[in-house]
Nucleic acid binder design. Structure first.
Lengths: 243, 243
DNA sequence: GTTATAATACTTGTATACAAGTATACCTTA
DNA sequence: TAAGGTATACTTGTATACAAGTATTATAAC
């Protein structure tokens, strides 16, 4: 069996991460991309062998993934749940719920510094596009939304985000990588959406915020199906190669 | 130093739990009750000695508590965060957010079986009051709300609940135990609130649902301050005894 | 007395060892 | 051939061991 030498998750994001985190990030990407199919049973020992680490970090990784609803820890083995269309919709339910809540708080706050911060991130995204750096773009995209959420200083809203973030990050990464290759013309629109979002915050315009938020979802979700197909093909291909 | 032989968390709820879960549950109770003060630094080795287990389950417990925002894992040691008034309000923000979302889904569903289930739990609560069983009452109270959330079959809403549940459970436990001793007359009103909630679901009445939900919060939160004081006194007393 | 350096006693993260339990497969017996 | 029991090869959860790093403290030099 030929092991993939290349990891799906960007190595430079893991500079100070523990082995457990690394494994969790990589497994998460493999699950979301479809490389590991839904229903697969993961064994601690096998994973430890595959990733060339001991069971301790593997157990840590599995606990993380279970709390993110990516796997289900059963009596024997961890069953991969993965993301169907239904789960992706559910994730967006939660994001919509969080971000609208956050917005209601924002309109009562001094948002000067936040808007400034978001503008900076927005500029970063432009640069990432210019240099065709999908990973950097994804990073800034996630950071954009996290910055908004952090702004209201609500530890339990942040807790929800922290649980959702890894999955979102992986989804966005995969979506953007595919987009850079196939749909480069999408990016001006994505950038514009983020501008609209900033504008909505600046002018405290609920309707505009909801609108740009929904469009932002569509930008990741819209092409999910295509992404799905291509990733499925990819994983089937890899399987065939293995034999 | 005299160790408490009695655990705060009900032992019978831990029949099939691992050592890590036990430690997490007990530590959570101690933090929320104020027995372990906010700002305290927990050491893995010390905890392992205190609970007479190895570091493995302790590490597991600390990871769990960190994901619940009860502690903050730092470079050296785990810092206890605990619950201030602010955090408790935030928790109720989240519950309100979840349960209103759930209600919007419920009104579009067949709620026959759910109402039946809730009525059963409601009866159980009555029995628990009759026999002055605070723990059983708390269990049924938590189950009541979990049953409602589970009804809409939304895995990511359930994920949020799963993160929040342990803290809620501890809060309710402490609140109800104090109530059984000091404010026994509160229970008829609490029961009535739950009846109202069932009624709201049955008649699909948003306003009634929100109203009973808010009252339900007040029933736990309202006496939090008193609880706080009494627990603080208790912990001070224990400290003095130790020396 | 103050500062710099070195030794020590912690800390975390990972690997390994072991015990208890569970599914699988094989072998015995009818 | 079918049923039942046993052996085996897994599984998880916990304990222990070890390496690498960090704070603290003591010591030495100025």
């Amino acid at each position: 069996m030929t092991e993939p030498k290349e990891f799906l998750y960007p190595g430079k994001w893991l500079s100070k991460a523990s082995a457990g985190d690394r494994v969790a990030c990589e497994l998460r990407m493999q699950i979301i991309s479809g490389l590991i199919e839904s229903g697969t049973i993961l064994s601690e020992n096998k994973l430890a062998a595959d990733f060339a680490v001991s069971r301790s970090p593997i157990r840590e990784a599995l606990k993380i993934l279970a709390s993110e609803n990516m796997i289900r820890l059963e009596r024997m083995g961890a069953v991969v749940i993965g993301l169907t269309e239904k789960e992706i919709e559910e994730i967006y339910d939660v994001r919509l719920l969080i971000e609208t809540f956050v917005f209601e708080r924002l309109v009562k706050m001094d948002i000067h510094e936040l808007v400034n911060e978001l503008s900076k991130i927005h500029e970063m995204m432009k640069v990432a596009i210019k240099f065709q750096d999908a990973d950097e773009f994804s990073y800034q995209d996630v950071l954009f939304h996290e910055t908004i959420i952090r702004a209201i200083n609500h530890s339990y809203m942040l807790m929800i985000w922290n649980n959702l973030k890894p999955v979102m990050e992986s989804l966005i990464l995969l979506s953007m990588r595919a987009r850079f290759k196939e749909k480069y013309e999408d990016f001006p629109r994505i950038l514009e959406n983020h501008e609209l979002y900033i504008e909505a915050i600046k002018t405290r315009d609920r309707t505009l915020m909801i609108k740009s938020l929904h469009q932002n979802f569509d930008d990741v979700q819209g092409k999910i199906e295509d992404l799905w197909m291509s990733q499925q093909m990819l994983s089937k291909g890899a399987e065939l190669e293995d034999e």
